[in-house]
Amino acid sequence: MMKKGKRFEWGYLLLIPGIGYILLFIIMSTYVMIMQSLGYYNYTGESGFSLQFWGEVFDQQFLDSLLYSLKIGIGSSMISIVICYPFVLILQKTKGKRILLSIMKTPMFIPALVGSFLIINIIDYHGIVNELLVFLRIIEEPLRLRNDKYGIGVLMIQVWKNVPFQMLIMSSAIESIRKDVVDAARNLGANIFSIIRHIILPLTLPSALIAVTLVFIGTFNDFAVSNTAGPLYPNSLSSLMLRNANVFGEWNLSACIGTMMMITTILLVSIYTLIAKRLEKLD
């Protein structure tokens, strides 16, 4: 029960640096972006409430970019987790696990743009892949593998970059499964596949969801990789946003795209939260 007339807690003021930071750099910029999408904060010309930009933004180009970004976001997060699970399971039983994990974490410390150029160098006209294929006389002239129109290069780079990140999450999750639970299952006659299906997968699913969601957010909103290795068309949403602002000076349209990116991300995180809650209830 609360005491009547409790004094103001001055300690709350200590929260100001943290809350202030969030307000200034996240909420304020989000606020300006949303207002700009509604016609305010124009750098040139008239400013004032308008839904015109929202009417213009949903054209074929935006939809193509949205689908492309979703494809890269969902594709890279799902492929990464599919690769990550068996890797982590195998690593649990491998000698020198820590050294191997450290080596495999390397892509995490390489910036996305640098990683992108590294992969481009491999698949470039005179990259290792083409040189090898020519050397083996499989092809006569190098293939043009860069900026493929399906975004396969981007998916490759994103998977390369994100598997180690997901491995970090998943290896902790798998390590936290009590050994006696697995042993008890073995005693009752469960084989390795049953253990994975009935024990490891259900117990690590919440962590897998987090891993997939975090990678999705990063890759869906990616700019660097798509801009260097992505298809000539469609652009990722971030690239489209930059293009509209820089090339055409359409800041309001860019703000609409930014808002849509934010809404999509929030929607996905909400879905994740709902699923996580359901899983908790099931437990």
Partner: peptide, 18 residues
């Protein structure tokens, strides 16, 4: 009450920022 104070402070900071 604590939540109310926190919410008031947040609102105040938002207003100042805006």
């Amino acid at each position: 009450k604590q939540v109310k104070i926190l919410a008031s402070m947040l609102l105040l900071i938002i207003m100042v920022c805006v």
